[in-house]
Simulated scan of single mutants.
Amino acid sequence: MDTLRALAAFVHSVELGSLSGAARAMDTTQPTVSKLVAGLEQSLGVRLLRRAPAGLSLTDEGQRFVEHARRMLDAHDEAVADLQQRSTQPRGLLRVSAPVALGQCRLNAMAGEFLATYPDIALELVLDDRFIHPLEERIDVSLRLGGPLPPDLVARHLGTWPRVLVASPAYLAARGRPRQPVDLLAHDYLRYAAGDDGVLLQGPDGPVNVPVHSRYRVNNAVAMLDSVLAGAGISLQPTWMVAGLLAEGRLARVLPRYTGPAQEAHLLYAARPYLPQRVRVLVEFLSERVARLPGKAKSAP
């Protein structure tokens, strides 16, 4: 039995929820995956998976074994990467996760450039505003904007981007320009659906919390920005999204002496003695490109 292939079949079946999904990931057939998993179970003397019409589920033994299997596969990848490091062209599949807006607005273009530079690498970009833990969902690199940083991962800081209040020139011409934070109460304020009422701003006299109420909320940052551009109201936006629009005059700063909570960008990936070459080149590529996004706050001297 090819133990490594059997381990991969088992782990893929668990992560993708079906033998057919594992077969597609491994570029083989479902009967082959079923045979590999059955052979692994036979060699271990335990049942790892329950097979039912509703899908696959782990047995107690399978639940205990799956993390060991992942580590064994990772150890194999690290050993191969150590041998191949700097001696061959980077190759293989990379899975990258990122917030939806960052992926739509910035990472798609970066992905095209990366793939052109490394023709033997395949890239899967997973866009989701929830945090996807790399070790739990077989993600090679996760780009995170804000939020707590898991202690079991390497977190490379890429920079800080302020949030600023913006509106379209047409909206401000029709509704007037706020002169102080309390003036926001008389305006249409657009916000992210998951946020609380109120907006926290940092100004020359310290923090101020304005209890704005929003008639329109949306759970997609790109859709919110489109609404602001269309003249629907005022919104707090990260500078990496709006710096170009401000420079073009399509948006205007509102209360320019005030900013909202900044976004901290980090690249997260597993702590390994040897990063696979394909992961290493991606980390370096994204570190350079993301750090160059517009509107980045200057580092303290």
Rank of each mutant, 00 (worst) to 15 (best):
M1Y: 11
L4R: 13
L4A: 14
R5K: 14
L7C: 04
V11Q: 00
H12V: 05
V14I: 12
A22R: 01
M26V: 04
T29A: 05
Q30E: 10
G39W: 03
L40K: 05
E41N: 09
R47Y: 02
L49N: 01
A54I: 05
L56S: 00
L56H: 00
S57I: 03
F65L: 13
V66N: 00
H68M: 12
H68R: 14
R71K: 10
H76S: 13
H76A: 15
D77E: 15
V80M: 06
A81N: 08
L83N: 04
Q84W: 02
Q84G: 06
Q85I: 10
R86G: 07
L93G: 05
R95I: 11
L102H: 01
G103V: 07
Q104P: 02
C105R: 13
N108Q: 12
L115Q: 09
T117M: 07
Y118S: 08
P119C: 03
L123W: 04
D128F: 06
V141Q: 00
S142M: 07
S142Q: 09
R144V: 11
L145T: 03
G147W: 00
P148G: 07
L149V: 11
L149M: 05
L149W: 00
P150L: 01
R156D: 08
R156H: 09
T160H: 04
W161P: 06
W161D: 06
P169L: 10
Y171F: 12
L172V: 09
R177A: 13
R179A: 15
L190G: 01
A193C: 04
D196Q: 14
G198V: 12
L201Q: 01
Q202V: 12
G203R: 03
V208N: 01
N209I: 13
V212P: 01
S214C: 15
V218W: 01
N220C: 11
N220R: 14
A221K: 06
M224W: 05
M224Y: 03
D226P: 00
D226G: 11
S227V: 04
V228Y: 00
L229I: 10
A232I: 00
Q237I: 05
G244E: 14
L245F: 07
G249I: 12
G249V: 13
R253Y: 10
L255W: 01
Y258V: 02
T259M: 13
A262G: 06
E264Q: 15
H266E: 03
Y269V: 07
R272Y: 07
Y274T: 15
Y274N: 13
L275R: 01
L275Q: 15
Q277V: 09
R278M: 06
V279I: 13
V281S: 02
L282F: 09
E288Q: 15
E288S: 13
V290C: 02
R292M: 13
P294R: 06
G295E: 08
G295I: 09
K298C: 09
A300Y: 10
P301I: 09
